[in-house]
Computed example of a mutant assay.
Amino acid sequence: MNAISASLTDSATMLRRNLRHTTRNPLALFNAVIMPIVLMFLMVYVLGDAFSVGVNYADYATPGLIMTTICYGISPTAIAVNSDMTTGFINRLRVMRISRAAVLNAHVIVTMLRSLVAITVIIGVALLMGFRPQAGFLQWLGVIGIIALTVLAIGWLTVAFGLAAKTPETAGLAAVPLMLLPFLSSAFVPADKMGPGARQFAEYQPFTSIIETLRGLLTGTPSTSSTITAIAWCAGLALIGYLWARKSFTKRG
């Protein structure tokens, strides 16, 4: 067995372990879904009429709620990664012939699977609340691709946060800035309607380009420039998270 196949086999083993932990802790998936649903009801039914966005507000807000769902689902990953490091699980693996990278890969994959399930639920609720996407088949493929890239990037950043934290509690808190970023983007109100400072930050932070790409694809009016920018941000964040995670893992492992 060569190194690549061994790493894949080890990753599958770690993935099964993490999936079992997830099924035994459905609260993690519940938390990732319930808060975005509450936000959806709040934004669409309570505050939506206060915003002038030029379109049905459910159509406008759903891409932002997809991003919010991704961000609200990352805290369990940071805590789980840190727990593996601080409870001695990684030390026990030292005496076994298992790929160190498999541990990190499994956490990222589980994060992606959990996020995709939560996003599917959120889109279903959005449809019940008036969301009417105009995307064709290829545009839906684009939506899925952008979501997958985003979850991959945020997943690696979350793993890095978990490895860098000293305790599981601080690991959970380390994910809070990512959870807040959608509110400082064009998720719920156009950036050009924000005040000075907030407007510039919202226009140039990474989540805005990702949200605008999803919005364009879902409404059937994709933008090449925002798509390229979103892909570049996802690739850059994924690379930063991966390199940071590997460095922290090697240092602490």
Rank of each mutant, 00 (worst) to 15 (best):
M1P: 14
A6G: 11
S7A: 13
S11V: 10
A12L: 14
A12Q: 11
T13Q: 10
R17D: 07
T22I: 14
T23A: 10
T23S: 12
R24Q: 14
N25L: 10
P26C: 00
L27W: 06
F30M: 14
I34C: 12
I37K: 03
V44S: 05
V44G: 06
V46L: 05
G48E: 09
A50E: 14
S52W: 07
Y60E: 03
G64I: 04
G64C: 07
C71H: 03
Y72D: 00
S75G: 07
T77G: 02
A80E: 04
D84T: 03
D84V: 03
I98V: 15
S99W: 02
R100M: 07
A101F: 06
A102S: 15
V103D: 10
L104M: 13
L104I: 04
N105R: 05
A106Y: 05
V110Y: 11
T111A: 13
M112D: 08
S115N: 10
S115Q: 05
L116T: 00
V121E: 06
I123V: 09
A126W: 01
L128G: 05
L128P: 05
G130Q: 08
P133L: 00
P133H: 02
G136D: 11
L138A: 15
W140Y: 14
G142Q: 05
V143Y: 07
I147N: 08
A153G: 08
A153T: 03
W156S: 00
W156C: 03
T158H: 07
A160H: 04
A164T: 09
T167N: 12
E169I: 11
V176D: 02
P177K: 00
L178Y: 10
L180D: 01
P182S: 00
F183T: 03
K193L: 13
K193G: 05
P196L: 02
G197F: 04
A198H: 03
A198L: 15
F201H: 01
E203C: 07
Y204K: 00
P206L: 02
I211M: 11
R215C: 09
L218V: 04
L218D: 03
L218T: 10
T219Q: 09
T219K: 04
T221I: 06
P222G: 01
S223I: 06
T224H: 08
T227I: 04
T227N: 08
T229Y: 11
A230T: 05
L239T: 15
I240F: 12
L243S: 10
T250L: 15
R252N: 12
G253M: 05
